[in-house]
Nucleic acid binder design. Structure first.
Lengths: 107, 107
DNA sequence: CGTGTAAGGAATTCTGACACG
DNA sequence: CGTGTAAGGAATTCTGACACG
């Protein structure tokens, strides 16, 4: 179950401890769209463990001299790549259905 | 990996939302040893997803008219039962080692 | 016993800005 | 660009206590 990993429940101070990043850095990375926390009614940020992992990755790339906008571009490219792969997969499935199930309607 | 499930990172207000319990109830259940959150340096409670699940169980049992000390006793019994089973298991493993490895010392 | 609530205070977080490099 | 910091304020949480049933 990935549900725990994706649930936004961790306050920024705890994220700071988990990642070793300052809260200033975390807020800045949010500004640059590298993480997208949820907000409580009062406006406090809530992060997921997935976000924590993303932030650690960001930290590593920053250490390697990469800039936030580069990391952002890279993420966007990855997203496109993944959705492209999924579309190909779906089309393949469709083809297989045509091949083998043309005369047998889905139950 | 159960690591996400066991990590204490969720503040009490969020736990309240996740469980439907009031913060008062959650604090009381802690007092009765039904959950054991960690504390930040400043003293704020931090719960795990496991704690959240425990609290939901507690809520169900309370609805069934069970009292906190009964739930606590039940938990203690379960712990003992589990450690007893683990001991038996260990002893069985030991016996098997005697049977088959008596003359072959562990590598 | 279990839970709501008002009280006073402390810890946590928020935003916008200035600074530095 | 990326990050520290002081500023002022708001949201969150804490404890101990009184109330009710």
């Amino acid at each position: 179950m990935v549900s725990y990993r994706e649930k936004k429940v961790i306050p920024i101070g705890t994220v700071s401890e988990l990642t070793g990043l300052s809260v200033r850095q975390i807020r800045y990375y949010e500004e640059r769209k590298l993480v997208v926390p949820e907000r409580s009614k009062g406006g406090t940020r809530k992060f997921s463990f997935e976000d924590v992992d993303m932030l650690v990755e960001v930290a590593n790339k920053m250490e390697d001299g990469m800039q936030t906008y580069e990391i952002h571009k890279m993420r966007e490219r990855e997203k496109k790549q993944i959705s492209k792969e999924k579309m190909r997969e779906e089309m393949l499935k469709g083809q297989l259905n045509v091949q083998f199930n043309r005369h047998r309607p889905p139950s």
